[in-house]
């Protein structure tokens, strides 16, 4: 079992689904980002996904795009991201996962990126613009010690989901809907059918559902079809709208992950 999956297993054994929270590195400010991340962990996140800001985040909706833009304006670069991870990791045992687009990673140099990222305490990596078709050309041996988390979507065929499960490590990131990141108000029966399908096909890895999850109610709906959930845009939105209410928001999400 990988580090991430054994951590998820531990959470599941405690009769709850895992809660992974996405934060854009250096958003809303560079200075107190570490503090923000630690507060999110203290208030009930089981894992953190830290987004590496990119100028052209194709898979992201307006909320995360904007946060990425702000982070870049704050002067956040790869070294800052690693420094955040190092400081967070020194205070927690929970898994840190990096999420970043391909270009800044190859520009940094994949060997250096992997060394520096792993040294800073990150264990998992999600690159949303590298599908399994480009797995071999992108994930060279440099990435061997990273848990490479791959994504499925409602448009993925059964065969592809099996292949993604086979190649993926850490967990399978199941994208709930077609589209970019961002909150959605309701999920119809097709969405749930697809989650059921995907969950039944993912056998090797744990599976977490992400994209569009904004409330405890959403989480409750998804609990039967996953080992955990990922909340991103809704958290960024909360930071934008009511920063002080974030700890309480994380606690309600955490509560919703309890199985009782």
């Amino acid at each position: 079992m990988t580090k991430i999956s054994s951590y998820i297993e531990k959470v599941n054994q405690a009769n709850r689904k895992a809660l992974s929270i996405f934060l854009t590195a250096g958003f809303p400010a560079k200075e107190n980002f570490v503090e923000l991340a630690l507060s999110v962990l203290e208030n009930g996140a089981d894992m953190l996904e830290i987004g590496i800001p990119f100028s052209d985040p194709l898979a992201d909706g307006p909320t995360i795009q904007q946060s990425s833009q702000t982070a870049l304006e704050n002067g956040v670069n790869m070294k800052d991201v690693f420094s955040f991870c190092e400081k967070i990791k020194s205070k927690t045992d929970k898994p840190l996962i990096l999420m970043g687009y391909a270009n800044p990673i190859i520009k940094y140099g994949t060997k250096n990126f992997c060394e520096d990222a792993l040294n800073s305490g990150a264990v998992g990596l999600i690159v949303p613009d590298v599908p399994i078709d480009e797995y071999e050309s992108f994930y060279t041996n440099d990435f061997n010690n990273f848990e490479k988390i791959l994504l499925t979507t409602p448009a993925s065929s059964d065969e592809r989901i099996k292949e993604i499960d086979k190649k993926g490590e850490g967990f399978v990131y199941c994208v709930s809907v077609t589209g970019t990141t961002g909150t959605r108000t309701n999920f119809d029966e097709h969405v749930l059918k697809n989650l059921e399908r995907t969950y039944s096909l993912v056998t090797k890895n744990k599976m977490l559902i992400g994209f569009g999850i904004s409330s405890p109610e959403n989480i409750k709906t998804f609990l039967p079809f996953c080992d955990g959930v990922i909340v991103g845009s809704a958290v960024i939105k909360k930071i934008n709208e009511d920063y002080k209410a974030l700890p309480e928001f994380i606690r309600t999400l955490n509560n919703a992950c309890e199985l009782r």
Partner: peptide, 20 residues
């Protein structure tokens, strides 16, 4: 066959678009 022009090209897109 993989859509490459030497090392260039390819399909660096989110999984959702691959089937299309």
């Amino acid at each position: 066959a993989k859509g490459k022009f030497g090392i260039y090209g390819g399909k660096y897109v989110p999984e959702t678009l691959i089937s299309a």
